[in-house]
Amino acid sequence: MKRPLILRSPTSPVTAEYARAEVAVGRTPWRDARYCVVDLELSGLDPRSDEIISFAAVPIDSGRVITGDALYGLCRPTRQLPEESTLVHGIRTVDLADAPPLDVAIQPLIAAMTGRVMVAHVAWVERSFLSRALERQGARLREPVIDTYELGQLLAFERQQPIASRALDELARSLRLPVHRQHHALGDALTTAQVFIALATHLDEFTPETVQSLARAKQRAWWHWG
């Protein structure tokens, strides 16, 4: 699939609203912003050839996880799923036979992300897959994006603790938080959401955090190194 250089106009009212909606400005104190925690399950990790097969979104308002508005959905892939991916998330090609194709399936996810700052764990994965999916619909992924993995690293620096693992479950446990169903988009999204509010609360104890400061966690962590 070739990436378009120039975007067409948004292909659906949902996407148009996503592209247009106001998102919290950078200096908004972190608790005052609205977030959408996203987790994707994939057929593999290469955005050029692999596909989104399931997704979950969990909203956060005023620093609280609004679990009743959580979203979970499946997408029908265009190709057979590689066996190794099924081993990870337990989803088989046949399980997705009745699911809508990506462009249709993703509409509720785009709606859920509208007007919210995206949060994900090891966010480059969600960032790259969702960018592509959105571009197909004539929209760009909205910035900023907050990465809980980077927030975990930053807190480790602030607390002068060893660098945290990349694994979501290990990060959650190190924060003494529960780990929900792993390698299931909804379970991982809930774990990530809880990790996010815990990390943001802790970081806020050192210096008041804003949307912008949380989004710049990686640079701040590097600065600690320097």
Binding site: V65, T67, Q194
Partner: peptide
């Protein structure tokens, strides 16, 4: 379960 909100208290 639908009305549950999760809070974190340090």
């Amino acid at each position: 379960g639908k009305v549950v909100e999760v809070e974190f208290h340090p």
